[in-house]
Design a protein around this nucleic acid. Structure first.
Length: 433
RNA sequence: GGAGAGUUGGCAGAGUGGUAAUGCACCGGACUCGAAAUCCGGCGAACCCAUGUUGAAUGGGCGCGCAGGUUCAAAUCCUGUACUCUCCUCCA
């Protein structure tokens, strides 16, 4: 949610900034018109209410003194009707106004590459060496199915397309990866959480998924509940409607949760493998900061996500998304994309964003500054990381010519001595008999 | 799923139709070398509107979980709803 008063003061600045995100200038004008109407109506109705309050006080006194107040009561009856009519107009006007306002995305930060499409993203740095294969590298789905550790066919039988069973050492690899991620983030000062996976509409609205992206999520039938599309929702709503003691800030939290996405509109894209699932695990990082800390904290958070990839030895690059490609609530977003040898390209594995006060304004999350004044906190969120895509990258980058997969060194402690996933050790039930 | 109780300021807690007691906390002052205690005064989150200012305010609105309704007037009456607690039922 943008600051309505600020829009009122500097409409042209907002028009210019939001145009880079595809917002038409008329959208701002509409808001301004509705805002002007709102204030006009408020002045009218509030003047009448003041009059009514005054009269009611006198009527009360008259009644106590057993005097007649019939005349005043009759006059107030009339005013009461006017007030009611005006209040209805205000309510109608407000509904439209706040709906328009809620559909405006956050203002992009200075320096974010301007483009209405994803083209034009700025590469910040490239890290890690791309491995040279002396054989044709396989896709992770082929590696996984050959080893028996990824079973898409049976998942289709049970759930449908875009679901998977991890089996045996595959399941263990997923678990090792997210445990490793959580352990690293705890070292970096994050508090681990295990939040609800189903949230109400208010929470979805607070983090900006609603009202714009209702079709992208799974709603519980007949209830006002939604399966979380990301842990950002429960983690960022945690302090909703609170004044956070300033000395607590910045607060770092992290959680492993599944994420549920309907992937409406992505039919035909990434139909194979772990890249685009209806349910996937993700370790999420969320920060609450003071207003002057959030840009520093964005860099640190990006570094926290990068640390995971560096320790796993996976090559990646960091890009700053364009104005048109950023998520609705973000002011600036750094994406980490890791190298998928079989596809021969980088794929997104993390997205770290500074939302400034955009979410806090909706969620009423504030702190008191040095002067005792209430300020909105800034919120940041980032994946640290998408677990399934990380596993996919491990399978592809650590594959061997014989179809086995070497376990990255930092994960070996989680495997209690196993250093390689082979056809022989991958799935115990395939060995038996 | 059934029955009951509750939701009021930072906290505690009164208030069954006349415009939100009181206590603690907090802020200012007095007393004191200073502090505690005591006394005096203030303060009831946030929000919205107007005039004004840019770390001055003043006036008004709103405000007793939320949303409606009745009324000249609602914390109070009515309807709906959310959440919390207790008991029963069920359950990992």
């Amino acid at each position: 949610m943008l600051d309505l008063k600020k829009i009122r003061r500097e409409p042209d600045w907002f028009k210019e900034k939001l145009a880079t995100r595809g917002v038409k200038p008329e959208a701002i004008d509409e808001v301004l018109t509705l805002d002007a109407k709102r204030r006009e109506l408020l002045q009218e109705t509030e003047a009448l209410k003041a009059q009514r309050n005054e009269a009611s006080k006198k009527i009360g006194e008259a009644k106590r003194n057993h005097e007649s107040a019939d005349e005043a009561i009759a006059a107030m009856q009339k005013i009461g009707g006017q007030i009611k009519a005006l209040d209805e107009q205000v309510a109608q006007n407000d509904e439209v106004l706040f709906d328009k306002l809620a559909h405006l995305p956050n203002v992009p930060h200075e320096g974010v590459p301007v483009s209405l499409t994803e083209d034009g993203a700025k590469e910040m740095r490239k890290v890690g060496e791309i491995r040279h294969f002396d054989f044709e590298p396989k896709h992770h789905w082929d590696i996984g199915e050959n080893l028996g550790i990824l079973d898409f066919d049976r998942a289709a039988k049970v759930s449908g397309a875009r679901f998977v069973y991890y089996v045996g050492l595959g399941a263990q690899l997923e678990r090792a990866v997210y445990n490793f991620m959580l352990d690293e983030h705890m070292k970096e000062g994050y508090t681990e959480m295990l939040p609800p996976y189903i949230v109400n509409a208010h929470a979805m609205y607070g983090t900006g998924q609603f009202p714009k992206f209702k079709e992208d999520v799974y709603q519980v039938n007949g209830e006002d509940m939604t399966l979380i599309p990301t842990a950002e929702v429960p983690l960022t709503n945690y302090f909703g409607n609170e004044v956070i003691p300033a000395e607590k800030l910045p607060v770092y939290v992290t959680a492993l949760t599944p994420s549920f996405r309907s992937e409406a509109g992505s039919a035909g894209r990434d139909t194979r493998g772990l890249i685009r699932m209806h349910q996937f695990n993700k370790v999420e990082m969320v920060k609450y900061t003071k207003a002057d800390q959030s840009w520093d904290e964005l860099e640190k958070m990006t570094a926290n996500a990068e640390n995971i990839l560096q320790k796993l030895g996976l090559p990646y690059h960091v890009i700053t998304l364009t104005t048109g490609d950023m998520s609705f609530t973000a002011s600036e977003t750094h994406d980490l994309e890791l190298w998928m040898p079989a596809q021969g390209k980088y794929r997104e594995v993390s997205s770290c964003s500074n939302c400034l006060d955009f979410q806090a304004r909706r969620l009423h999350m504030q702190y008191r500054d040095e002067n005792g004044k209430l300020q909105y906190v800034h919120t940041l969120n980032g994946s640290g990381l998408a677990v399934g895509r990380t596993v996919a990258a491990i399978l592809e980058n650590y594959q061997n010519a014989d179809g086995s997969v070497t376990i990255p060194e930092v994960l070996v402690p989680y495997f209690h001595g196993i250093t390689k996933i082979t056809k022989e050790n991958a799935v115990p039930f395939n060995r038996q008999k």
